[in-house]
């Protein structure tokens, strides 16, 4: 379970509020987060694994305070970024998965076997020794996901994971994420994907503008974007 306790984020230099004090309990298996660009969606999810620390209040993951137990929390929470290029560190696919496995498998041979098996299972076996620069966008996102899943997280945060992908890869990566037996927190601009969640948050202007069922949330978001409603406190 993820719990926000009046967590707020303020820009350190200017003092401008990025996220207003927010209290949430995220217990559902699939939660989607939608909202306009610059509204604070990424800041909200980055609080969950300590990429951003709250200026006020606290965030707890499975009872662990993120600010105090960052490394432990990051073993529980995997994070998938929008641009997989920035997430891939090693020059080839197999070496990147092996880098993730360094945490759990000490022997190099065993690590290589496990990484190759993982790549074969996601359909990238024949690309194992190919430079990550030579992979397509969809393949890179799958590789990034393989690197995250290799360390068996229980919560997966996906920050606009399909934004840079074409329709085919978007559908593939989206359905794959939804089927994983982890708690999935998905930030997305894809309203169809958002509507498939169990709960949806609409983030606007640094706060939670709506928190409820996906169908209602998407309708509210459309109205909000076209100026038919104004922001209201969370339901």
């Amino acid at each position: 379970m993820i719990e926000f306790k009046d967590a707020a984020v303020v820009a350190p230099d200017s003092g401008v509020p990025i996220l207003e004090p927010t209290s949430l309990r995220l217990t559902e298996r699939h939660i989607s987060i939608i909202g306009a660009n610059g509204g604070g969606k990424s800041t909200l999810v980055r609080l969950i694994n300590g990429l951003v620390l709250p200026s006020e209040g606290s965030v707890e993951v499975e009872g662990l305070d993120v600010a105090r137990h960052g490394p432990k929390v990051r073993r529980i929470v995997g994070f998938l970024f929008t641009d997989p290029s920035a997430q891939l560190i090693m020059p080839t696919a197999i070496e990147d998965v092996m880098l993730s496995l360094r945490r759990t498998i000490d022997k190099k041979d065993e690590r290589a076997d496990a990484a190759l098996a993982a790549l074969e299972e996601i359909g990238l076996g024949d690309r194992a020794d190919v430079s990550v620069n030579a992979l397509s966008g969809g393949q890179r996102q799958l590789l990034a996901l393989a690197g995250v899943l290799a360390v068996t997280p229980r919560i997966l945060i996906a920050d606009e994971p399909t934004t840079l992908l074409d329709l085919r890869w978007r559908a593939h990566v989206g359905s794959l994420l939804r089927s994983l037996p982890v708690q999935l927190i998905e930030v997305t601009h894809d309203l169809d994907s958002a509507a498939r969640a169990e709960r949806t948050l609409v983030i606007d202007d640094g706060g939670v503008a709506f928190d409820g069922s996906p169908i209602e949330a998407v309708a509210f978001y459309r109205d909000l974007m076209f100026g038919r409603v104004s922001r209201r406190p969370s339901a």
Partner: peptide, 29 residues
């Protein structure tokens, strides 16, 4: 809901065979 690495990649494998695009290992978006 905690899963093992094998479980996760078994799921990935299922998707790779069922739902992936025609030939994701070679397709270039």
């Amino acid at each position: 809901s905690s899963m093992s690495r094998e479980d996760a990649f078994a799921l990935l494998a299922g998707h790779a065979s069922d739902a992936r695009p025609r030939d994701p290992a070679r397709s270039q978006p």
